[in-house]
């Protein structure tokens, strides 16, 4: 089943293209890495999928629905910045999410908070940068969505917590859902991926299976990334 389809997707900012003519199909049951250097268009693509930006040309659809209320009900989006109100307590934010999203699983959220040792009675602004990121990721992964789009989910957390977060991602998505993860931390994440998309200057260079690329190149995705995007 095709979960996500982009056709001729183009986004220009003030006439400058950030994405040009992207064709992309993502099936269900995959974890896909969206990898590219700074300014390659990763966040733009993710925002178009989440419905925060409107395309200049082309279309995006999720399970056949154009981007809109219906698609947003199926897409769980983790932005690369914090949009939550810092003076709210974590448990109040959870209540807000519960109200807002039909597919939000409160028990799952509390379970993950407990495992990551986060006190739901505390206000968000009292947490460290890493802990705030964990809270946001927990909220996003607690939805039973069809497609998760995660923009830099592990950038601010220490390596030990990173392992736990990857486990959290692995254990908290439905079998027929897919996850699209953008990141620079390729080596940390490559073993949980089964597909990668290399993106450069707003165009897709490669969309292939991770083990296929490793077999072909005899190298890790991290090394291939460093070679392809060598400065």
């Amino acid at each position: 089943m095709t979960l996500l389809e982009c056709k001729g997707l183009t986004k220009k900012y003030c006439g400058y293209p950030a994405l040009s003519n992207v064709d992309l199909q993502i099936g269900s049951g995959h974890i896909i890495g969206l990898l590219g250097p700074n300014g390659s268009g990763k966040t733009t693509l993710i925002k178009l999928i989440a419905g925060l930006l409107a395309p200049t040309e082309g279309t995006v659809s999720v399970v056949g629905c154009p981007i809109g209320v219906k698609s947003k009900g199926m897409v769980s989006y983790l932005p690369d910045y914090s949009y939550l109100n810092g003076s709210m307590k974590v448990k109040d934010i959870i209540r807000l999410f519960e109200d807002f999203y039909e597919d939000f699983d409160t028990a799952r959220a509390y379970d993950m908070l407990a495992k990551l040792d986060i006190n739901p009675g505390k206000k968000l602004k009292t947490f460290s940068k890493g802990a705030k990121e964990k809270v946001q990721l927990i909220l996003v992964m607690s939805r039973r969505a069809k497609l998760y789009v995660l923009d830099e989910p592990i950038a601010g957390v220490d390596p030990a917590a990173r392992d736990y977060i990857l486990q959290t991602i692995l254990s908290n998505y439905e079998e027929d859902a897919s996850i699209l993860i953008s990141t620079h931390l390729v080596s940390d994440i490559e073993k949980i991926l089964d597909e990668v998309i290399f993106i450069r200057n707003g165009s897709i260079l490669t969309h292939a299976s991770v083990d296929g690329l490793r077999q072909q190149g005899g190298r890790s995705i991290d090394t291939i990334f460093r070679e392809v995007f060598k400065c």
Binding site: L166, Q167, L170, S171, K191, I192, L193, D194, V210
Partner: peptide
């Protein structure tokens, strides 16, 4: 097993 190994379930 995928969780234990921290790998993709498809792999």
């Amino acid at each position: 097993l995928a969780q234990e190994a921290s790998v993709n379930p498809n792999t």
